[in-house]
């Protein structure tokens, strides 16, 4: 009985945490547009530093920066085919959540496959 209650609780907490994740995505369009700590630091200092470094590296850098939006689906947390900025951000966030959940689904399936033959106490679970 205790086991049943416990597993029900675990299932619930999964959905509660997931609901918190969805809530966070819904709030994400309100995020500050200021540069984050790293970008802020780079903006402050890098211009001087990068000019002094080799120009070849700079060219490569700028080429990668301009090409960025073409290579990545949700570049800058925007969905390319949605014009509305808030919806675009929310949709990309939902896609990210799905990607992560999909990874863990596959990961646990793969782990179960690997673990099953080499687990001598597997039958014990039924008796508990």
């Amino acid at each position: 009985m205790n086991f049943v209650i416990k597993s029900a609780f675990i299932k619930n907490s999964f959905y509660i945490i997931l609901a918190a994740a969805f809530a966070a995505v819904m709030l994400s369009p309100m995020a500050s547009q200021n540069p984050d700590g790293l970008d802020w630091t780079i903006e402050k200092h890098a211009s001087a530093g990068l000019e002094s470094s080799s120009t070849a590296a700079n060219e490569k850098n700028s080429a990668e920066e301009t090409g960025e939006s073409n290579y990545f689906i949700f570049s800058d947390y925007k969905t390319p085919f949605i014009k509305n900025e808030s919806v675009s951000t929310i949709f990309s966030g939902l896609a990210g959540i799905m990607l992560i959940l999909a990874f863990f689904k596959f990961y646990s399936a793969a782990a179960r496959k690997n673990a099953a033959p080499s687990r001598p106490e597997a039958g014990d679970n039924l008796c508990r």
């Binding site: 675990i10 945490i17 966070a24 500050s32």
Partner: peptide
């Protein structure tokens, strides 16, 4: 499996929470 389930939900939450930049002053977030 239960641990991996919670891990998935928590990871999704941390990912989503990372999307929310908050201002910290000095023009940075």
């Amino acid at each position: 499996d239960a641990g991996l389930n919670i891990a998935g939900a928590l990871t999704a939450f941390v990912f989503a929470a990372q999307m929310i930049n908050f201002p910290v002053g000095f023009g940075a977030s």
